[in-house]
Each structure stands twice: as structure tokens, then as C-alpha cells.
Amino acid sequence: MSRRRTIAEVLGLLAWFGVFAWLHSLVGRAHLAATANASTLQSIERALHLDIVLPVNQWLAGHVGLAQAAAWFYRAYYLVVAGVLIWVFRRDVAVYRRVRRAMILMMVLVLPVYWAVPMSPPRFALPGTVDIVALYGIVGHASRAGGWTAMPSMHVGWSLWCAFAVWTALRVTHPRAALLAWTFPLLMVAVVIATANHYVLDIVGSVLLVSTAITLTAFLPWPGSAHPPAERPDSSHSPSG
């Protein structure tokens, strides 16, 4: 990719992230509905015996060192997302374009969900929880930003996308390293639950979101080809999801 196109790519992504952040801020304002939806979700989790957030959060709150590490991990994931984007771009432009499509689709798909089903996170709606990120995080009580769009968890969504991007880039040439990438979303799942930022069903929503985005991406033509990945003659040797 030429220098001019690289600059255009970077500026385009920055503009899109800015638009997404703005739209996200607009949909995350239905506080009363978010509280009611959170109460309903709590009831569902209790019925399914998935109500583990409160005991896990209270356990983490009693271990200051781990709580601090969890808060930093929760915040610093942006660096991982940026790092994965840059790394995949430098490694394989065709793979980069594919995973970028999945990323953009994920962001487009999540906004209507946030608008239709605002959700207050456990740290606001579940009595007895400790806001670990507000207590120990880099920017303190700014953890209240976007506090009514918990379903699905974009922290888990982004971490799943990172794992998918690395797996797609490495699975043919370095399959073991590709599998290691999936430890990142597993750690994120543990962190968002223990810090009381998300419910278990928020994680399920994230998996559905990312799976849908990846599936839709698979129907798009492979970059540089007139056919979808499944129809390429050399598809067995090309990274695919």
C-alpha cells in the first residue's frame, strides 16, 4: 500500500472511530430504561444460575493488588486494539482489510442494540458491588462514561476481534501462536465480570455480535478478488475465518 493510501487509511479510521464514539454517546442516555433492563437481566441470570458477578466482584475487591491490575487491564485494552491493527496492517494488507471489515461491521451492528436495549452495568444496578475501575483505574471515576450501554460488552467484543485478527493472520503459518491469541478475550471476560462492568449475558451478547460481524464479512469478496474467500482457488492456503 502506498504512503498516500496509508495516510488515507489512518485518517479514515480515526474519523470513523470519532463518529462511533459520538453516536455511542448519544445512545447511552436512557438511564431509567437501562436500570429497568438491568433488573430484568439480573432476574434472568438468577433463574439460569448465572448470577456470579456480585461474589466474584466482592472477592476481587478484597485483593487490592489484583483489583489494581484488573482496572489497568480494563483500561489499557485500547492499546492492544491499536497494536493489533498496526501489526496486521504491516504483516498482510489483504488480511488487514478483511479484519477491518469485521471490525467496522461490529461497530455498526452494536449501535442499534445499544439504542434498543440500554443496559445499566452491575456497578450501577447491582447493590453491593464495588466499582473497581473507578477506584483503581487510570482515570478514576471517568469509568461512568458510557455507563448505560453494557449489553453487549464491547470490551469483550474488541478483545474477541483482536483474537480473531491475530488468529486469521497466523493460523496457517503459526497455528500454536494463533491459538494463544484467544487468551486475551478469556482474560477480558474475567476482568469485566470481576470489576462489575458486565453481566454474564453481556458476554454472550458480545460473542453473538462478533460472530455475526465475522459471518457477514465472509460473504464479502476477498480483497483483490471478484469472489468471496470460499470461492478462491487457493482458499485452502489463505487466512480465513
Rank of each mutant, 00 (worst) to 15 (best):
residue 136 Y to L: 05
residue 124 F to Y: 14
residue 103 M to S: 12
residue 118 P to I: 03
residue 70 A to K: 04
residue 68 Q to V: 11
residue 7 I to Y: 12
residue 147 G to A: 13
residue 138 I to R: 14
residue 12 G to L: 02
residue 5 R to M: 13
residue 35 T to L: 15
residue 129 T to A: 11
residue 127 P to C: 10
residue 140 G to F: 00
residue 111 L to A: 03
residue 50 L to S: 07
residue 79 L to A: 15
residue 115 W to H: 15
residue 158 W to Q: 13
residue 224 G to D: 09
residue 79 L to V: 12
residue 153 S to C: 05
residue 128 G to M: 06
residue 96 Y to M: 06
residue 200 V to P: 06
residue 181 A to S: 14
residue 222 W to N: 03
residue 194 A to R: 01
residue 71 A to P: 01
residue 42 Q to L: 11
residue 89 F to E: 01
residue 180 L to T: 08
residue 137 G to N: 05
residue 67 A to D: 10
residue 41 L to Q: 14
residue 129 T to G: 07
residue 116 A to Y: 13
residue 172 V to K: 15
residue 219 F to W: 15
residue 68 Q to D: 01
residue 148 W to M: 09
residue 3 R to G: 09
residue 139 V to I: 11
residue 13 L to W: 11
residue 1 M to V: 08
residue 44 I to Q: 02
residue 62 G to E: 05
residue 110 V to W: 03
residue 161 W to H: 03
residue 79 L to Q: 08
residue 13 L to S: 12
residue 230 A to F: 13
residue 77 Y to T: 11
residue 59 W to S: 11
residue 204 V to E: 00
residue 140 G to A: 04
residue 157 G to M: 00
residue 167 W to M: 02
residue 124 F to E: 13
residue 4 R to N: 08
residue 101 R to L: 14
residue 96 Y to D: 02
residue 171 R to Q: 14
residue 34 A to D: 04
residue 91 R to L: 10
residue 163 A to S: 08
residue 165 A to V: 04
residue 32 L to K: 14
residue 86 I to C: 11
residue 29 R to W: 00
residue 219 F to K: 07
residue 31 H to F: 05
residue 239 P to L: 05
residue 8 A to K: 08
residue 171 R to T: 04
residue 86 I to M: 12
residue 181 A to Q: 05
residue 44 I to G: 01
residue 85 L to W: 14
residue 210 V to T: 12
residue 19 V to N: 00
residue 113 V to R: 08
residue 24 H to G: 11
residue 123 R to V: 04
residue 137 G to Q: 03
residue 174 H to P: 00
residue 85 L to I: 10
residue 199 Y to P: 06
residue 89 F to R: 13
residue 163 A to M: 03
residue 238 S to H: 13
residue 233 P to H: 07
residue 174 H to M: 08
residue 181 A to H: 03
residue 143 S to H: 02
residue 80 V to Y: 02
residue 113 V to S: 10
residue 122 P to D: 08
residue 23 L to W: 02
residue 226 A to K: 14
residue 115 W to G: 04
residue 78 Y to G: 10
residue 67 A to E: 10
residue 143 S to M: 02
residue 146 G to E: 06
residue 114 Y to K: 06
residue 229 P to Y: 13
residue 72 W to D: 07
residue 118 P to L: 04
residue 75 R to C: 05
residue 137 G to A: 06
residue 8 A to W: 12
residue 11 L to Q: 02
residue 233 P to S: 09
residue 220 L to D: 09
residue 58 Q to I: 01
residue 235 S to T: 14
residue 26 L to Y: 06
residue 92 D to Q: 09
residue 144 R to F: 11
residue 74 Y to T: 10
residue 157 G to Q: 00
residue 225 S to C: 11
residue 55 P to D: 11
residue 167 W to P: 01
residue 51 D to N: 14
residue 202 D to C: 07
residue 237 H to R: 15
residue 99 V to L: 03
residue 140 G to L: 03
residue 118 P to N: 07
residue 9 E to L: 15
residue 230 A to M: 10
residue 210 V to M: 11
residue 95 V to D: 00
residue 220 L to C: 14
residue 196 A to L: 02
residue 167 W to Q: 07
residue 197 N to A: 09
residue 239 P to A: 07
residue 49 H to D: 10
